[in-house]
Nucleic acid binder design. Structure first.
Length: 587
RNA sequence: GUCCCCGUAGCUCAGGUGGAUAGAGCGUUGGAUUCCUAAUCCAAAGGCCACAGGUUCGAAUCCUGUCGGGGACACCA
């Protein structure tokens, strides 16, 4: 064997990719291919049309130019090499130069044993090579409970983190607490009002500009309990810092319990206030100035049709984000000397980058405008320190909440919004999570309560869970009848079973492709397809009892099919685990 | 005015980073239930992949432009 980059588990698709690469390497030493030929674009995949065979490779088409020949001629030479491999029973050339491979059925049956052996680790990859990836997600402002607006990003971020972990990365799940801005003052004042209310004061209507939500009542009561009337009549300057900290702590408690309902637990909570207290923004500024990424300058007046009324030129410390493709340099401090959000965020990302090989942020699409500057900041850091830190911002589009086709109105101002807790109570964690993953994150989506709650059969999550439940039920039934899954007589399995194995065997590829693309939703769609295959296979038994899992008279066949069923169930379970959705035993 | 995302079946959406004849669900039409769970399955109908150019052996996919939908364009967070 030559050096083949086997970064994956030794699953079937990976094994045949390696075999193809070996054949190509031989052709390179035979002089058919140039010695330095690059196999980077060679793929070995199942053909879209199963009648074409078990596997197809595009090697001849990709390499024809390098070999200075035409695809079909090259394909013949590659096919000859591949046909010599024991487990390959046929290598045909088709279309513009595809090579379609047919495998000995034993190769597929062997995959079942692999699934059984690896169990919960089937599909796990070492692709990430242990790289430290920091995934920051949720980071909702600590001013109230989580509402639906946060939900999608939370689920997408969490599933992505799990996916990367399963694909061999060393993942840190991080939450950035924006506890330093003006909105925390508003929170503190709102809490103080509720505190006075709890002490028996008549507060009347909540004034404009404060948070009216009822969730602050218990906070006020707790604070009254803790402080008595100590802070009731003080000047604001006295109690504000105390109430800020207290209120933020309590809001984070609320948020964490909401996240727990979704099955989400972060490893690290980073506080913006702590960042400031530690002088991180100053450090960042000093470093950026030293490297000429920050200078004092005057912002241009905004272009476009809406010139601000009170525009006046001011000199501010500016970050050279234009150097990295932004259309304007961005201030890191305000004219009053305070840090801008960006100034702090920049320092925060520098901090994150120092402890990770790669950063991923999950943001709401309403922050799209700030992607360029923060990417610029991380790029500057990489450039300045000679340590490239790949940084990706995933934008998650808004969810339009519907109920029976009508948009659900939400207003933060009135305190009337649908919280995550409400939603989970209504439809359940698994439905929320899976549904959020049935659309690619960068596309807008509708979430219709009426549909998801009432017509439960429209829910892909039930479809997938049902497939798993069916398998488990069959296992129980079979055990009662004295059958146990066994890999001893797998040769009895026919073409229909092997078709099922083909799809199950794709799981490791799907995991790697999804992880590479940072798209957890692919796993959800894959599971749906696999469930469909299982259901279709199952229904063969409706017409023909000989095709059921349990065929009383044939112990060998039954136990082989149970072995198959167990493997499919295992794959579904592993996939659902990545998505954070439960694989139920019965429905 | 600038920037970002989206545009695929009547509707809701996939489409493995350029591959073979374009894929599901819902809805419509017609079928399967003495069944290991019918929350399932089978079949039919339904397409100018928004439009126009370009790149190459080959484009729904990449590049440019136009149109349409959504969002963002403070020293806010």
């Amino acid at each position: 064997m030559r050096k083949i980059k086997m970064t994956t588990n030794k699953t079937l698709y990976a094994a045949y990719a390696a075999i193809v690469e070996t054949a190509l390497s031989q052709l390179a030493s035979d002089g058919v291919l140039p010695a330095d030929a690059s196999f980077a674009n060679v793929t070995v995949e199942p053909p879209r049309d199963p009648s074409h065979g078990d596997l197809a490779t595009n090697a001849a088409m990709v390499l024809a130019k390098q070999a200075k020949t035409n695809p079909r001629a090259l394909a013949e030479q590659i096919a000859a090499k591949l046909e010599a491999v024991d487990s390959i029973t046929g290598a045909e050339i088709a279309g513009p130069g595809f090579i379609n491979l047919r495998l000995d059925p034993a190769a597929w049956l062997g995959e079942l044993t692999a699934i059984a052996d690896m169990g919960g680790d089937y599909g796990r990859s070492v692709m990430g090579e242990g790289r430290r990836v920091n995934v920051e997600y949720v980071s909702a402002n600590p001013t109230g409970p989580m509402h639906m607006g946060h939900c999608r990003g939370a689920v997408v971020g969490d599933a992505l983190a799990s996916l990367l972990e399963f694909a061999g990365h060393n993942v840190t799940r991080e939450y950035y607490i924006n506890d330093a801005g003006g909105q925390v003052d508003v929170l503190a004042r709102s809490a103080h009002l509720r505190y006075r209310e709890a002490l028996g004061e008549e507060i009347g209507a909540i004034p404009e500009g404060l948070y009216p939500g009822d969730y602050l009542k218990p906070v006020g009561e707790a604070l009254a309990q803790e402080f008595g009337d100590k802070h009731a009549a003080e000047d604001e300057a006295e109690w504000l810092p105390i109430f800020r900290a207290e209120a933020v702590t309590r809001m984070m408690g609320l948020i964490k319990s909401d996240l727990a309902l979704l099955g989400i637990h972060h490893d690290v909570f980073s506080s913006e206030a702590a960042l400031h207290a530690a002088g991180k923004p100053d450090e960042a500024e000093a470093w950026l100035r030293a490297n000429d990424f920050v200078y004092d300058g005057v912002l241009e007046a905004p272009k476009g049709k809406a010139p601000p009324e009170d525009w006046e030129p001011v000199e501010l410390p500016l970050f050279r984000s234009t150097k990295f493709g932004d259309d304007q340099d961005r201030p890191i401090k305000k004219s009053n000397g305070a840090w801008t959000y960006f100034g702090a965020d920049l320092a925060y990302h520098m901090q994150k980058a120092s402890g990770a090989d790669e950063l991923i942020d999950i943001w709401g699409a309403d922050h799209a405008g700030t992607v360029k500057r923060i990417k610029a900041a991380v790029a500057a850091l990489s450039e300045g320190q000679g340590k490239p830190v790949p940084f990706d911002v995933k934008l998650v589009q808004m969810v339009q909440l519907m109920r029976g086709g009508e948009p659900v109105k939400m207003s933060k101002r009135s305190g009337n919004f649908i919280t995550i807790a409400d939603m989970i109570e209504e439809v359940g964690k698994d439905v929320v999570r899976f549904t959020m993953l049935t659309r690619k994150p960068e596309a807008q989506m509708e979430f219709d309560f009426a549909k998801v709650v009432e017509a439960s059969k429209d829910n892909p999550v039930f479809y997938v869970q049902y497939a798993h439940a069916r398998i488990r039920s069959t296992m129980r039934k079979a055990a009662d009848a004295g059958f146990a899954p066994s890999g001893d007589a797998l040769a009895q399995l026919g073409e229909e079973e092997i078709a099922l194995i083909r799809n199950a065997a794709q799981f490791p590829r799907i995991i790697e492709a999804a992880a590479k693309a940072r798209e957890a939703h692919r796993v959800a769609f894959y599971l749906y397809d696999l469930a469909a295959d299982l259901h279709a296979f199952w229904n063969l038994g409706n017409d023909n009892p000989q095709k059921r899992f349990i065929v009383e008279q044939d112990k060998g066949l039954t136990e082989a099919r149970l072995f198959l069923g167990q493997a499919i169930g295992q794959v579904i379970r592993n996939g659902l685990a990545v998505l954070g959705v439960e694989a139920v035993e019965s429905m």
